[in-house]
C-alpha cells in the first residue's frame, strides 16, 4: 500500500479551493459568495502547509478567514443592499449579456492559457524544496526588509484612520 498522501491532500485542496472560488465568482447571492470565499481561504492555507510555510498558513487563517471575512460579512449586513440575493443568470446568459458579454471570460481564459502554455513549453526545474523557519522569517523582516516592514505598519495605520473617517456618518462629531 503505497499512497502518496501529499498528492491526496493536494488533490483534495485543489477540488475544494477551485470549487469555492468558482462559486465566489458565479453565485448571485453576496452572502454565499462571502462564505465560499472563507472556504477558499482555508484551502489556500492548506497549500501553504503543503509548501512548508506553517506561519503563513496560520496568518492566512487568522487574517483572511478570520478578520477579512468578518469585515466583509459586516459590510454586507450594514450596507442594507436591496438585492442581497442578486439575480440568477445562467452561465450562457452571463456569457452573452450585453454588459461586456464574453469579454471577461476571454480575457481571463487568454491569460490562463498563456501562462499554462509558457509553463508547458519550458518545464520548470524541480528545485530542492528548501524551507524557511519562522525564526529566519522574523530575522529577515527586521533586518533585510526593515524599511518595507515599517512602511507597511504606517500603511495599516493610514488605512485604519481612513476607514474610520470614510465610514463615519455625516453630521457626527
Amino acid at each position: 500500500m503505497n499512497v502518496n498522501w501529499q498528492m491526496v491532500a493536494f488533490a483534495f485542496l485543489t477540488g475544494v479551493t477551485l470549487y469555492s472560488a468558482f462559486r465566489v465568482v458565479t453565485t448571485p447571492n453576496v452572502t454565499h459568495a462571502a462564505l465560499y470565499l472563507a472556504v477558499a481561504f482555508v484551502g489556500i492555507a492548506g497549500y501553504y502547509l503543503l509548501l512548508g510555510a506553517e506561519f503563513l498558513a496560520a496568518v492566512q487563517v487568522l487574517v483572511y478567514a478570520g478578520a477579512v471575512m468578518t469585515v466583509m460579512v459586516f459590510a454586507i449586513m450594514l450596507s442594507g443592499m436591496s438585492d442581497i440575493r442578486g439575480q440568477r443568470l445562467s452561465l450562457f446568459k452571463q456569457l452573452t449579456s450585453p454588459y461586456w458579454g464574453i469579454f471577461p471570460f476571454l480575457i481571463a481564459a487568454a491569460l490562463v492559457g498563456t501562462i499554462l502554455a509558457a509553463y508547458s513549453r519550458s518545464p520548470l526545474p524541480a528545485g530542492d524544496g528548501r524551507t524557511a523557519s519562522l525564526a529566519d522569517l522574523g530575522k529577515a523582516l527586521l533586518s533585510t526588509y526593515l524599511v518595507p516592514f515599517e512602511v507597511a505598519s504606517v500603511l495599516l495605520l493610514a488605512a485604519m484612520v481612513g476607514a474610520i473617517i470614510l465610514s463615519r456618518r455625516e453630521g457626527e462629531n
Partner: peptide, 13 residues
C-alpha cells in the same frame, strides 16, 4: 494561474 483567472473573470464580470 487558474485561481487568478477566476478572480480576474469575476472582477471584470
Amino acid at each position: 494561474a487558474v485561481l487568478f483567472g477566476m478572480g480576474l473573470y469575476g472582477a471584470l464580470r
